[in-house]
Design a protein around this nucleic acid. Structure first.
Length: 432
DNA sequence: AATCTCTGCAACCGCAGGTCA
DNA sequence: TTGACCTGCGGTTGCAGAGAT
């Protein structure tokens, strides 16, 4: 198979087939990125009547045609009656009605000029470079300081769910799937809590995996494990689920735990209803061990456990670094600067070191294997984006994906990036 | 070959809750 | 105590790819 990658905005690493396995999308990244027009674009493929911007395979490469702006960029109706009943009214919260959305507070991205939708490689690199250098003490201010035309929320989501170097990519292992199923039986749709028990997995990813195929799997297992007892009824999120505290309390307390498990993976004030471990609890005992181990770890530790290569973050532990959000506070008090120059100088500096064989990027003085992986990850990402190294447009850029995988990642897993040309064009037009 | 349907997932949304002045 | 601000969470949506027709 020629070429490399990708599917940057199409998932972490390709898509799952019906059996739950990943299909690896191998394409010519540089073509997709519009960096190297290896072959003249053929006649545009037929456009789907549905999406209007479907790609078509041409000799292994996907050619994209411009997409119209997403509908939701203009208006996304508020949904879900259950949601409508949640929380405060706009009057209660002191929020004005938002003319576009019709109600509630203004969407944070509503500011004119902010980008929405899929992230471009350039945006990703800016975000990565900024966080690598300054951390993310203030998501709200980050996009402006990083020169991103995004809202803080969007930046945070992108980082948490996709760009964090400590993310585990690839298939859920059977163990992970089993854990998710079991934890869901205990916690219900408490995705963040479930994610806290699965290092490297995000709540969003778990939620997606659950909704796509674990739900079915779990329902098939219902007659057996877990499902018959405590499994929330699918499609009925309001169905009460047994609280973890009730299930775990007997276990954690019996183990003399400090009780933190409840806080970590199932905070609940619900009255305990179980005094004797049920068969389900017994089966979940290994899971509860995990919960207990995580008891003292802040929930967000995993979510923010990215290396913070700043001087204020000297710990070799990413988790420790993660807390460094506050440690870089002063760094965020940046004067208005030419962010373009700043960001790219960051990248250039790092890349120069890497090219010289010096894998030491800022703040990763004595890199642990994990950190080295992160450095490599950044460098590889840059390579993949064609942001450094030979940029001869006529040369397809074979990235290191051909050789090694990401740390903690299956060999087959490739970080992919497919950016429809339209997005690049859109980006360019936005930056003007 | 064209079109339709299903599936997977990134990104969006509003709300809850914590922090701070 | 209150209100503003911010972050995190969970639900939902739209897009794109693959398979079916």
């Amino acid at each position: 198979m020629e070429g490399i990658l990708l599917s940057w905005d199409r998932g972490l690493v390709g898509k799952r087939n019906s059996l739950g396995g990943r299909r690896i999308e191998v394409r010519r990244a540089s073509q997709l990125l519009g960096l190297s027009p290896v072959a003249p674009a053929p006649a545009l493929p037929p456009v789907s009547s549905r999406s209007g911007c479907v790609s078509a395979s041409v000799r292994g490469a996907h050619i994209y045609r411009p997409c119209p702006p997403p509908i939701h960029a203009l208006h996304r109706p508020t949904t879900s009656s259950s949601r409508a009943n949640r929380g405060r009214t706009s009057e209660q919260s002191g929020l004005v009605r938002w003319p576009i959305m019709g109600r509630g507070r203004a969407p944070c991205c509503a500011k004119v000029g902010l980008n929405r939708g899929s992230w471009t490689p350039q945006e990703d690199m800016r975000l990565i470079a900024y966080i690598q250098k300054h951390g993310h003490a203030n998501w709200r201010a980050l996009p402006r300081q990083a020169g991103l035309l995004r809202c803080g929320k969007s930046c945070r989501l992108r980082w948490i769910n996709y760009l964090r170097p400590d993310l585990r990519r690839g298939n859920f292992t059977a163990e992970e799937e089993a854990t998710v199923i079991k934890l869901h039986a205990l916690l219900g749709n408490k995705w963040s809590k479930i994610a806290a028990c699965l290092p490297g997995r995000t709540d969003n990813e778990i939620k997606n995996v659950w909704n796509t195929h674990l739900k079915k799997k779990a329902s098939e297992q219902k007659p057996g494990v877990g499902g018959s007892k405590g499994e929330p009824a699918d499609g009925d999120p309001d169905t009460p689920v047994p609280s973890l505290s009730s299930a775990s309390s007997s276990m954690t307390t019996s183990e003399g735990s400090n009780g933190g498990a409840g806080e970590q993976c199932g905070t609940s004030n619900e009255p305990e209803t179980m005094d004797v471990p049920s068969p389900l609890e017994l089966e979940l005992e290994p899971v509860m061990d995990i919960l207990g181990m995580l008891a003292d770890a802040p929930t967000e530790a995993l979510a923010t456990a990215a290396p913070m290569p700043t001087s204020s973050c000297s710990s070799s532990s990413p988790t420790t670094c993660a807390g460094g959000g506050g440690g870089v506070e002063e760094l965020l008090e940046l004067p208005d600067i030419d962010m373009d120059a700043d960001i790219w100088s960051i990248i250039d500096d790092d890349v120069a070191r890497l090219q010289q064989g010096d894998a030491t990027v800022p703040c990763t003085t004595k890199a642990s294997p994990e950190e080295e992986g992160n450095e490599w990850w950044l460098a590889d990402l840059e390579k993949e984006l064609g942001l450094w190294g030979p940029t001869e447009e006529s040369q397809p850029q074979a990235g290191p994906h051909d050789q090694i995988g990401y740390p903690g990642q299956d060999m087959e897993m490739v970080m992919s990036s497919s950016y429809p040309q339209s997005r690049s064009d859109h980006e360019a037009s936005n930056s003007e």
